[in-house]
Design a protein around this nucleic acid. Sequence first.
DNA 1: CACCAATACTAAATCGGTTTAGTGACATGC
DNA 2: GCATGTCACTAAACCGATTTAGTATTGGTG
Lengths: 371, 371
Amino acid sequence: MTTSPVTLQQVADRAQVSRSAASFALSGRPGVSESTRSRVLAIAAELGYSPNRTAQNLRSSRTGIVAVYLPKDVSVLSYYMEATFGIIDEAELSDHTVTFVPHSAESAARLRADGVIILDPTLDDPVIPRLLELGLPVISGEEMPQESAQLTGTVTSDHAGSTEEILDAFAAAGAHSPAIISPEERMSWSMTIEDAYRKWCGDHGVETRIESASLDGMSETTRRATKRLLESGEVDAILALTDGSVLTVVTSAASHGRTLGTDLLVAAAVDSPVLGYMDPPVTAVDLRPREFGRACMRLLTRALDSSDSRGDGRAPHAEGIQTAATSAEETDALQQSVETHVIHRDSTAGPLHRPRSTDSTTPPATPEERS
Amino acid sequence: MTTSPVTLQQVADRAQVSRSAASFALSGRPGVSESTRSRVLAIAAELGYSPNRTAQNLRSSRTGIVAVYLPKDVSVLSYYMEATFGIIDEAELSDHTVTFVPHSAESAARLRADGVIILDPTLDDPVIPRLLELGLPVISGEEMPQESAQLTGTVTSDHAGSTEEILDAFAAAGAHSPAIISPEERMSWSMTIEDAYRKWCGDHGVETRIESASLDGMSETTRRATKRLLESGEVDAILALTDGSVLTVVTSAASHGRTLGTDLLVAAAVDSPVLGYMDPPVTAVDLRPREFGRACMRLLTRALDSSDSRGDGRAPHAEGIQTAATSAEETDALQQSVETHVIHRDSTAGPLHRPRSTDSTTPPATPEERS
DNA sequence: CACCAATACTAAATCGGTTTAGTGACATGC
DNA sequence: GCATGTCACTAAACCGATTTAGTATTGGTG
C-alpha cells in the first residue's frame, strides 16, 4: 500500500552517478559539474526525493527535536498554546519537531533534544536546573528569575511599559486606587509588573495593594483574593495578571454589587480570547504570544547554527581568545524583545462612578441607569 | 564541557565482547550466556549507557514521533491541552516524542511520524484527508464524522449518557425548557449531543431549541446566540457545548436580568478549570481528558507494535485470507471508550424560579425567596 | 615531455545501533 | 569415527544519509 520513500541511492542510480555525487549536487556543494547538478536535481524532483531526517540526524548527532517547557499547572492560559504554535511555525522552517517536556525531573534528565525553550521560568521549579544541566542551548521566554550561566538567550516583553499604560488608563478613567492580583509563583514577568506597579504608585502618591493568586486557573486562593479586593471600598480598579484571576474578578463583581467599567475598572496583563467577549469586554495586554514563540525559536535556531559551524560539542577544543570574543558577541545578539500593546476595551472605559464604601448590598445597576 | 554519551561499543569493549553480543545481552534476546549478560548489564548501568534513539530509529525505519492534530481555532479549550499531556504521559512509556501537526495541508503531507492522533476530527477539515493518506496508523479521538477506511482506531466518550444526565438534572431542578448551544463545526461529539438532546426532548414532549456558536473561543456568533437564548422568556436552562459559549452565557446572564442557579440553569458539556470557580460554579461533564489522551496513545502503541511484528510496511506481501481475518480482529480491538461523569455544581442546583416571560427587567431573586 | 594542479567524480568511512550469517568448540547419535 | 546439532559468540551487512580520502582525466607550464 504505502510506497516506500525514495532514497538518495535511487536518485543517484537514476542519474548514473555515485551516491556522494548526488549528495553534493543536492546540497549545493562544489565538486560536481553544473550539468550533473541540474540532472540530479531534476531527477530528485521527479522522484519526489526527500532526505531521510533520521539518517541526517544520526550523522550529525542531532535529534531534530526542540523541547518546550511550560510552567506547571497551567491549563487555561491560552498564551502558552499560542506561543507554542509560534515556536512550531518557526521550527518548521528549520525542519525541527517541537515537543513538550513533562513536568518531572527524571524525564527532563533523559530528554533527547537539540535545544530547549523554557516559557515563563518559575523560581524554585525543580525541573529547570535539570534542563540547564543537559548542556543544550536553552532559550528563556521571559527572564530567568535565577541567574544561570548556561543560558543561551532570552526573549522578553515590555511588561513595565504596558503596566504603566494600563495604570495611566485607570487614572484617566477616574480610578484613584488601583490594585493588582499577581500569581504566587515567582516569575520574572509578574515581578516586573509588580515593580512597575509599585513605582507607579510611588510616583502618584497612591498606596499599593497587591493580592496574590495561584497560577493554576482558579483556586480558592484566587477567590479569596478577589473577594478581599471587591469588598474593600477603597479599590476602584484591578489589574489581574492571570487568565484565572481576571475571570474570577469579572464573574464575581456583580454579586458584590460592582459593575465593570462603571464603578470598577478591570484589566488583564495577559490577553486571552475570552476577554474580548466578556460583558463588558475586558481591557488587556496583547503580548503577541505567537510572535513571541517565533522569536524564541529564531534565537534557538541561531544558537544551533552557530554551535555546529564552530566546535560541534564533540570537539570543543576552543581557540583561546577568538572564542571569548565570539561568544560575547553572541550573548549580546541572543537577547530580544517582542513588541506588545494594550487593547483598550470597555472594562476600563470609565468615567468611573465610585462605589459607596463598604456597602456591598447595592443591587447591580440596570442598563437604564445612566448619569 | 558536555561529556559525549556512552555508546554500545564502549560497553562492549569494557565487557570484552563484541558489539552484537552486548546488543543481545541488553535486549534480552537469546544467544548469550547468563554470565555474559549480567556482566554487560552491570557495565551498561555503571557507564550510564542509554541507546541512541536516532540510530535505533534509522535501523527500524521509524521516527519515534507521534503527531497530534487538534481542531483549528481552539486556543481556549483546556481539554485539548490536558488530552495532549495524557498522550505524552503514555508516549513516554514507549519512548515516543509527541508533537503537533500545524494546520496546513502541506505540512501535513510532509509530516514525519510513526502515527497520528486526531482529536475531535471536524467534518470538511482539509488537513484530515492528507493525514489519512500518509499510510500511518491513525487514531481518532471521538468518532470520525466522515467514513474512512484507513482509520486504525477510535476512542470515544459517552456523550449521549452525560447529556441525558444533565437534561434530567435540569428537569429535576425545575426547568422545563432546556436549550443547547452547539459549535458550528461538525464534530462527532457535538452531533452526538445534539441527537441525544433531540431524543430527550422528544421523549419528554419538549420543543428543541438549538443555537450554534463558533468554536474559536468566543465570537460575535456566540454572543448573538447567547443573546437570543437569554432574551427568550421560554428558555430556562442552557447546556453549552464549548468553553467559549458557556463563559459567554455566564458572563452575560446578569445583564439580561438572569441569575444562575435561580432563574436560569447552566451546564457545560466539557469541563474546564474555570467553571468550578465561576460565581456560581457551573455544572459540567468531566470528560477526563488526560485519561482520554492516554487511551488514544495506548491504542496507537498497540497498532505500532502489531505493525512491526507482521509486515513492516516495506514488505507488505499480504497473505491473502489471513490478513483479512487479522485486520478485522484488530479493528474490533482498537475501539475504546473512556468513562466520564457529570460534576454537579450550583448552576444547576435549583429549585428553579422561572422568570416572568418577556420581562427582562425583573430584578434577580434574592437568596431568601424559596418556593 | 614531464610535472603539478584543478576538476569531476567514486570508494569508503562514519554516525550507533540491530540483525543475519558465520565460526569454532563441544556434545550427542548412530 | 563421522555426521549432526547446539551454544556462545564474532564478523559483517544494514538503515540512509554526509564527508573524507582517493583516483582518473584534463589543462597548463617550464
